[in-house]
């Protein structure tokens, strides 16, 4: 698989496999993958920018925490992202800028309602070619 994400078929739920050159990109593709499960991204415009910082424990906690932050912002404020720029990923924090807009059921096609990103069968691995992550969402 090239850099990017693919959707994993899991009975009852849905997952993403993400492949990236570095950690920042891994978090970016994770976010784009997540948003594309909610609605086709070609219908989303980047009209506002959200500055997002998420704290977490360890890489796994940080990755799941990051995705859950994006789910929270969608489910609470209707914010759907399209352009994601992760500025830094440290041991305890991820800092990013996400360009997107407020979800409008009149204009945006409705996809999946994600409840949460989970730790179930979570994998984050580094090899010579870069980083791979597998994450499953609760639907």
């Amino acid at each position: 698989m090239d850099r990017g994400f693919e959707i994993l078929d899991i009975s009852g739920d849905v997952g993403l496999r993400i492949r990236a050159a570095d950690l920042e990109e891994l978090f970016e593709y994770g976010a784009i993958g997540l948003y594309s499960l909610i609605t086709p991204l070609n219908g989303v415009k980047a009209v506002e920018t959200a500055e997002i910082e998420v704290e977490g424990e360890g890489l796994e906690g940080l990755f799941v925490g990051w995705l859950n932050e994006l789910i929270f912002r969608f489910d609470t404020y209707g914010f759907i992202g399209r352009e994601v720029e992760v500025e830094s990923v440290s041991d305890r924090m991820v800092a990013a800028r996400v360009g997107g807009e407020e979800f409008d059921p009149e204009r945006h096609e409705r996809g999946l309602l994600l409840k949460a990103a989970t730790y179930h069968d979570l994998k984050i691995e580094k090899d010579d070619g870069g980083w791979t992550a597998v994450v499953i969402f609760d639907i």
Partner: peptide, 17 residues
Amino acid sequence: RGFGHQVCTDYIEVMER
């Protein structure tokens, strides 16, 4: 709804520790 999912997400972090 989202309320219950957020309670779950919050407490999974608590339970993990």
